[in-house]
Each structure stands twice: as structure tokens, then as C-alpha cells.
Simulated scan of single mutants.
Amino acid sequence: MSKHLPRIAMVAGEASGDLLAGLLLDGLQQHWPGLPSQGIGGPQMVQRGFEAWWPSDKLAVHGYSLEVLRRLGEIIQIRRQLRTRLLQNKPDVFIGVDAPDFNLGLETDLRAAGVKTVHFICPSIWAWRAERVEKIRRAANHVLCVFPFEPELLARHGIAASYVGHPLASVIPLEPDRAAARTALGLQPEDTVLALLPGSRGAEVKYITPTFLQAAVLVRQAHPGIKLVLPAAPAQRPTIERMVQAAGLQGAVQVLTGQSHTVLAACDCTLIASGTATLEAALFKRPMVIAYRMQALSWQLMKRKQLQPWVGLPNILCGEFVVPELLQEAATPQALAKAALEWLDARQQAPERIAALHQRFTALHHSLRRNTSVLAADAIRQVLAA
């Protein structure tokens, strides 16, 4: 192996991208100890020696329309400055981690200038916005895919790709330790625990959290002793705590900074915003109710681009509604509470339903479990050697 350390530039948007990029850096640093990497990233990447020129939460936006337009100017300016900086001092490879609306255009410009480009996580062209396949073809020398059916789909469009497994499937144990998680959170083995995961973006917190809390009030009426746990992104915790107080749940909801994996390991059921967290919940083998709410115009635009009947990753990967989805107008507190109570009551009344879900999610976990960090690093090394 050459002693030359390649210089890696990366962009990861939001907490989920930061986690994925951190795991990717683990694999790269096994090949190249002391590997320099710079760009846009979060705390997981920084812990691994990444030089963050901007924090990843600068790219966290939600939907379309007004909430994005307010941030658009700043994001465009960041991309312009980053592009200039990378073209003036070209890295050996640029890796865009998720954030396709930001990264694909940047990758296209860098690739045209001779920089090798890798996109980590194939945009979900199989679910919605299929037109992005042309952008991917122009942007990426290679795509690292986290779902097994994606490389064949990309190959049909002349795009080189590798299946590397989903890194979360290796991070999350096949049999999560519920007892240890409950001990860590101060919960008792016999407690009934409902986890509330409304998302980490500011707009998600705004549109989803109040509805989740109103649903929790209704669930508590049916199960007065239930324990409610809500892991919050650090920047969102003050806002969430005010919402908890406004819902009359102060003292009834345990609001935590982070610790979403511990919460999912500990809970009996979760109300959860659609996104990567739903896959995490599936890997923890937890019953869930998937929900989403956003600004009305954003919702109309997204619906028109949807290609499948499901939006939650567990349902998409299983090809059917294995867990309920309640979206936009359907995501009422009453409907969410009813769906959550059906899972909670099934523990005694229909345990076979819980067992069947556990079996389905275990099979899904096995299909996604690969040595992702090493496989991804090997693919990037081959791109560099080409």
C-alpha cells in the first residue's frame, strides 16, 4: 500500500449524514491512518479528526417553499464558497454523504474539473424524484448503496455502484439489550414505555412535535402509568421543552439530549417521524407508528413526485405496510394515539403480531448487515486507483 495519504473532502448534511460519514471515516482510516479530511460535517466526523469548515446542521432544511427559501441564500453561498475552495486546492476524492440537493450539483462541478467523486447513499430514485438519475450520472464516478437492489437499478442507467450494506445494521445489535437501555434511562423492567421521535430538524420539531405530544396525552389516558421518553437534538431541546410544558406534560415526558438509540432499545413502541430514524427503529425490532407533517405546499409538491405507496423505510424495504403510516392530514393526535395503543395492547392481546414484526425486522437486519465501513473504503480506494 502506498504511503501517500489521499486528501478527502466530504459533505454530510444533518445528524444522520454525520453518523454515516463518521462510520465511513472509520473504514478509510483503517486503510490510511492519519487520513486528512475536510469540508462540511458534524460531531461524529469531528471526533474522527475531520476538519469541519462549516457544521453539517447548516444544511438541514425541510420540504420546499417558504422554510427552505429563507435558508436558501445562505446554503447557496456556502456551496459557492466550498466549491471555490475545493477547486483552488483539489482533493484526491470528494465524497458527498446524502444531502443530494446540495451534493449532486457540487459533485458535477468538481468531476468536470477532474476531481474524482463518490456519492454515499443512492438518492431514493426508486421512491420519488426518479428524474434525479440523470443528475447522479453526471455527478458521481461511483455510488455507494445501502440497499441491495440499488446497484442493479443504477447499472441500467450506466452508473457504477457498489452495495456496502447499511452501516446502521452493523452499529445496532441483532438483539438489542432492552434491560441495559432501561437501566441507563432510569426505567424499570415492568414499565410500559412509549418513545416520541419527532425528528431533528427545526421545521420537523415545529410541525410534528405538538401532534406527537397531543397523541401522548391521549395514550396516557388509556395507560396512566406509561413512561414517555423523547430524545431531542441539542439545538432543539429548549423548543421541545417549551412544547412539552404547553401540552401539559411537564414532568410526564423525559426529554433527553440525543440518546435516540438507547431510547429505541428501551421502548415498547415509538411514534416516529418518517426518515432514517424509522430504519433505526426497525433494526431495534420495535413496533412503530410512522408519521409526518409539513407545510401544506411542501406536502403537495412531494406527493406529486412519490412513486410508491409507502414513505417509511421499513415499509418500502418490506414492500408492504408492516407498520402504519399517518401522513399530513391523517396524522391527527387521535389517529396516532389509536395506532400506538394497538401496538401496546397487542403485547397481551395479540402477541403473535409483535412476534411476526420482530421476525420480519430481524430478516431485514440480516439483509442489510455488512462490513460497511470496510466495503465503502475499498470501493473508494478503487476509485482513487482508477
Rank of each mutant, 00 (worst) to 15 (best):
H4V: 13
P6F: 04
A12I: 11
E14Q: 12
E14V: 12
D26S: 11
G41W: 07
Q47A: 15
A52E: 06
W53H: 15
K58H: 12
A60P: 01
V68E: 08
R80G: 11
L82D: 04
R85M: 10
K90G: 00
D92H: 12
V93P: 04
L104E: 04
T108M: 12
D109N: 04
R111F: 08
T117V: 14
T117Y: 10
V118G: 04
I125R: 05
R129Y: 12
A130L: 03
E131P: 03
R137N: 07
E152H: 13
A181G: 09
T183F: 00
A184E: 13
T192H: 03
R201S: 08
Y207R: 05
V217Y: 00
Q221M: 04
A222K: 15
L228M: 11
A232D: 05
A233L: 14
A235Q: 14
Q245E: 14
A252S: 15
L256R: 03
S260M: 13
D268G: 07
T270H: 01
L271Q: 07
L283K: 01
K285D: 00
I290Q: 01
Y292V: 04
L297H: 03
W299K: 01
M302C: 13
N315H: 12
N315E: 11
E320C: 10
L341G: 01
Q349D: 10
I354G: 02
F361C: 10
A363L: 14
H365K: 06
R370E: 15
A377I: 07
R381C: 06
L384S: 02
A386T: 14
